[in-house]
């Protein structure tokens, strides 16, 4: 259970941290604000999920301890969310992938047998439903905009596609949780996620890259090199000045 909640929490924490990097640098002022809203929602979800994780851990750790004092190997997020923002096409495609995933995930988790998780999912579902509405429209604009936007989106797809499989990785531990009605079934999520994403892709000129490689390891704490660097930045103050009140 702890691992599962960590996975959900870290996906949001790391994605929110990446999105926060856009703050002040958006492609135009309105979009700058909108991206920050998404980041705020997602970091809010991270806070709730980390609180729950800390509670389950039960050794007196707080959500902040988990966010700021775990090393990379302790993080259980998928590698997709730690990928650099790249250009706006990268960021929005990653966002679209995560939004589709989160909408299906939270829909199921709203009915989780774990009451706390169900409550978090119910609240978060409202937020991600809007995020998806937004990222879907951006996918339309970029996929049917200019030659440059189509090229950039194709590049982003080429780079990010291989990271999406990790969202649906199965494990014995997860099977148990699914059986207990706590977690969402990854096979079910994969079917729905792929149906949505492929339906959209079919309406565009974009093609899914062919390759044998699939990212894996994040759920066991084996990440890309980017995560360590992100944590250096994110955890700097807590590491340099331990045991302070902020």
């Amino acid at each position: 259970m702890y691992n599962y909640i960590q996975n959900l929490a870290d996906n949001t924490l790391i994605l929110g941290q990446r999105l926060a990097q856009w703050c002040g640098h958006g492609p135009f002022l309105e979009e700058d604000l909108a991206l920050t809203n998404t980041s705020l929602d997602i970091l809010g979800q991270a806070q709730m999920l980390l609180n729950l994780a800390a509670e389950i851990k039960g050794d007196g750790s707080t959500a902040d301890d988990l966010a700021f004092l775990r090393d990379a190997i302790g993080f259980k997020n998928v590698i997709l969310v730690e990928q650099p923002n790249g250009d706006f096409a990268h960021t929005m495609l990653r966002q679209y992938f995560m939004d589709v995933y989160h909408v299906h995930l939270y829909t199921i988790l709203s009915g989780s047998s774990n009451q706390s998780l169900a409550e978090i999912a119910e609240k978060s579902l409202k937020e991600v439903t809007y995020h998806l509405e937004r990222s879907q429209l951006w996918m339309q604009r970029l996929a049917h905009g200019t030659k440059e936007s189509i090229d950039r989106l194709q590049n982003a797809l080429n780079e990010l596609w291989h990271y999406t499989h990790e969202l649906f990785e199965e494990s014995e531990e997860l099977d148990d949780l699914v059986e207990q009605g706590i977690a969402a079934d990854p096979i079910h999520l994969k079917i729905h996620w792929e149906a949505d994403v492929k339906e959209w892709l079919a309406s565009t000129a974009l093609t899914i890259p062919k390759t044998g490689w699939k990212a894996t390891g994040g759920l066991n704490g084996h990440h890309s090199e980017y995560l360590g660097l992100m944590l250096c930045e994110m955890q700097f103050l807590q590491r340099a000045y331990p045991d302070c009140e902020w």
Binding site: F28, L29, E30, E31, L33, A34, N37, Y130, E133, R134, L137, R141
Partner: peptide, 17 residues
């Protein structure tokens, strides 16, 4: 007021702003 390229974007930007 605000800027947008289409009415859907205007609606979303209005929500976010």
């Amino acid at each position: 007021s605000l800027h947008a390229t289409d009415s859907q974007m205007a609606l979303q930007n209005a929500r976010d702003l």
